[in-house]
Design a protein around this nucleic acid. Structure first.
Lengths: 198, 198
DNA sequence: CCCGGTAAGTTACCCCGAGTAAGTTACCAA
DNA sequence: TTGGTAACTTACTCGGGGTAACTTACCGGG
């Protein structure tokens, strides 16, 4: 309780702590409603210190988004690296993605649910990263296909994943199930459901 | 210039004018940065009148989103009603959707780019509407498939469409092209690109 | 024709939360 | 032990969302 026990922290530690708290607060309230005063208070710190570290409220959000983005990217990259053939690579990526989404729902909410202009650049760069991850896989295995189609398909997959992850989290669908549906859809499409002919 | 020429307006006319202006302002700035004072000024009206009509800034956004949602829904429903078999119905829906997106980019931006908690309910209800539009089509043509899979596929398509529409608008892809890519992907999936076997 | 009721609109204000200027305290190195 | 600096606080300003209380145009009935 005593203020005397609160030790000063190194810049790096303080930053991590602040990002943790910010992630939490932005996820449970939302960006517009969250206040810097509350975040500061939960850190046990005064508001100007937040500004010293992140410059602005937007800056703080952006930093939080960027951190979450990096984690997500590393996790999916690592998972995909273990795969060998395209369907398998895709599946591993999807499972990793949805697993991250359910496990780190706070960070993920910050990533997906706040595409307001504030974070828009950061969120778009998440997508560019994902694009850079998916497009080469498709391109490598389908060399005769034009770039624009590859881009379109990649964007489709990204949008689909974002949407499914929200659905899965909301309805309590497991990452594996979500990944299975996504994979089936992306691989075979609707025809196999609707049209039994070859 | 003279204030004397400015006539009073009927409630309904004022409301449409305000929604038009709001849509414009929210699209060109973004929700967080847009001010009620500016919207009021552009309407040639004082701020409290806005509050009389919409209650709050969020209320105004929500009203704008709801109006845009209704338009989008009507346009896609009408288009799909003209189709006969599933692939055709899907295609008509997609073309209508992307056409609306490019033609009414302002309204559409309000619909898609502002999924902050403020509008979250409104945006989710757009999706529920779309869900109610797509799921039955799939279900009708694939009666043996379980509900959960239908739901998953529907959500996938919704997410994919949102993403592709942003890409198409950004890169100047025509609605028809965007629809064609989406349709190909949703219908046949990736296998046909990657795996030439039956 | 004018008058009273109400729909349409305004002025002048409050208050909260983002952002800041200037100062203070703990810690370490010489 | 002291000087330098990194970590931190107090005490503000200011803009924009929101509101209370008031004013003005318009219209239907006596």
């Amino acid at each position: 309780m005593s203020r005397t026990t609160r030790k000063r922290m190194s810049r790096a530690d303080r930053e991590t702590q602040m990002l943790d708290v910010a992630e939490e607060v932005f996820a449970e309230r939302n960006f517009a409603v969250a206040t810097m005063d509350e975040i500061a208070e939960r850190c046990g710190v005064s508001k100007p210190l937040l500004y010293d570290y992140f410059g602005s409220k937007e800056g703080l959000l952006t930093a939080a988004v960027n951190r979450a983005r990096t984690e997500l990217y590393e996790v999916t990259t690592a998972a995909m690296a273990l795969g060998t053939e395209p369907r398998d690579i895709l599946e591993r990526g999807l499972v990793a993605y949805y697993t991250f989404a359910t496990a780190h729902s706070r960070s993920f909410a910050v990533l997906i649910q706040e595409p307001m202009a504030a974070t828009f650049d950061a969120v778009e760069s998440v997508r560019r990263q994902q694009h850079g991850l998916i497009a080469p896989v498709i391109a490598a295995w389908a060399p005769h296909v034009e770039d624009e189609r590859i881009t379109a398909y990649t964007e489709l997959i990204i949008g689909a994943c974002e949407r499914i992850s929200l659905w899965a989290m909301h309805d309590g669908i497991s990452p594996e199930r979500a990944a299975a549906y996504t994979l089936d859809f992306c691989w075979d499409g609707l025809r196999v459901l609707v049209d039994p002919s070859p």
